[in-house]
């Protein structure tokens, strides 16, 4: 298992204890280890142990509960490359990732910046309204989205009214439009969620920095680019990793909004994994291989993001 190297360029530079002798430094380092021990142990127990089991399962084949070691050991992994349905879900999931994540994070940044203004009124109201989508039950959200985009729904009515289309679009019955609806749903649901982290991050920044920039004559756009974004870099890294992870493991929208249709064209990898393990004739070994494929892809992307965004400079 490869680890993601977060090693900073100048590790330890900011540790003020350095010049005070190694004894104190060692003691502090030990304190740090003690602080993170409970969390690390819990993760080993609740996550890593089952993950090792799942990895062992991915090396086994057979249907139902009668599994045997696969020959060759990488049988299930080789199968991934021959499985058109897996490759299809892979492509679809990456389309979601590439389009949705950047739009969502930029929009969330803009919203957080606007809502951090001291002079803006009704901030609490706006904040709550924009956060609400991720708190609203998935049931009503998917129901509403399906209704909005139904053949005789408001979206079609509006587009027809504006003469942008001549006949109603069957949104969920075409691959492109069904994926569009899922991306829109994801944006709607998670932008406010990410905004919360930026808002929290902005509170940890001295407000006078923004005021200084304003006094110095920087317009809102310049302040945003040269003050807000650099200051929020740790949070942007966090949300980028989380959104990448969330999108590559996307399940809810695929399952509830489109049921993966039409013709499995909007199905996500996690949806396919669930189908393999619980709905179809159970193929747990192969399902585990799919989940490890997801893990490897998320890990690689997170590694790149860490390399770019976790420098301590």
């Amino acid at each position: 298992m490869s680890t993601i190297d977060l090693t900073p360029d100048q590790a330890g530079v900011r540790t003020p204890a350095r010049h005070r002798g190694t004894g104190l430094e060692k003691k502090r380092s030990l304190t740090g280890w003690i602080f993170l021990l409970p969390a690390a142990l819990l993760i080993c127990w609740m996550n890593f142990y089952p993950m090792i089991q799942a990895f062992l399962l991915s090396l086994q084949s057979g249907k139902g509960a009668k599994l045997t070691w696969a020959h060759p050991a990488w049988y299930n992994y080789a199968r991934l490359f021959k499985d058109p349905q897996f490759l299809q879900t892979l492509k679809t999931t990456f389309i979601y990732l590439v389009i949705q994540v950047p739009i969502m994070l930029i929009l969330a940044l803009i919203l957080a910046t606007l809502l951090n203004s001291k002079t803006l009124r009704f901030k609490g109201l706006f904040r709550t309204a924009i956060f609400l989508p991720c708190a609203v039950s998935l049931v009503s959200y998917s129901f509403v989205f399906r209704t909005l985009f139904s053949t005789d729904g408001p979206v079609n009515d509006a587009l027809m009214g504006l003469h942008l289309i001549s006949s109603p679009v069957n949104w969920l019955a075409n691959a492109g439009t069904a994926r569009f609806v899922i991306i829109l749903g994801l944006l709607w649901r998670w932008t406010g969620y990410n905004m919360v982290f930026y808002l929290a991050g902005l509170q940890n920044i001295d407000y006078s920095t923004f005021e200084a920039a304003r006094i110095d004559g920087a317009g809102p756009v310049k302040t945003f680019i040269y003050v807000t974004i650099p200051q929020l870099k740790p949070m942007i890294l966090l949300t980028a990793i989380m959104s990448t992870n969330g999108t590559l493991q996307l399940f809810d929208e695929s399952w509830n909004l489109t049921q993966g249709g039409p013709a499995n064209m909007s199905m996500s990898m996690s949806h396919y994994l669930y189908q393999l393990s619980f709905q179809n004739n159970p193929n747990i070994g192969y399902g585990s291989a799919v989940s490890y494929a997801i893990l490897i892809m998320v890990a690689i992307l997170a590694l790149i993001q860490m390399r770019v965004g976790d420098r301590r400079d």
Binding site: F143, R146, S150, T151, A173
Partner: peptide, 8 residues
């Protein structure tokens, strides 16, 4: 008539 979902 083809529709999108069970509810519909």
């Amino acid at each position: 008539t083809e529709v999108n979902s069970w509810d519909e």
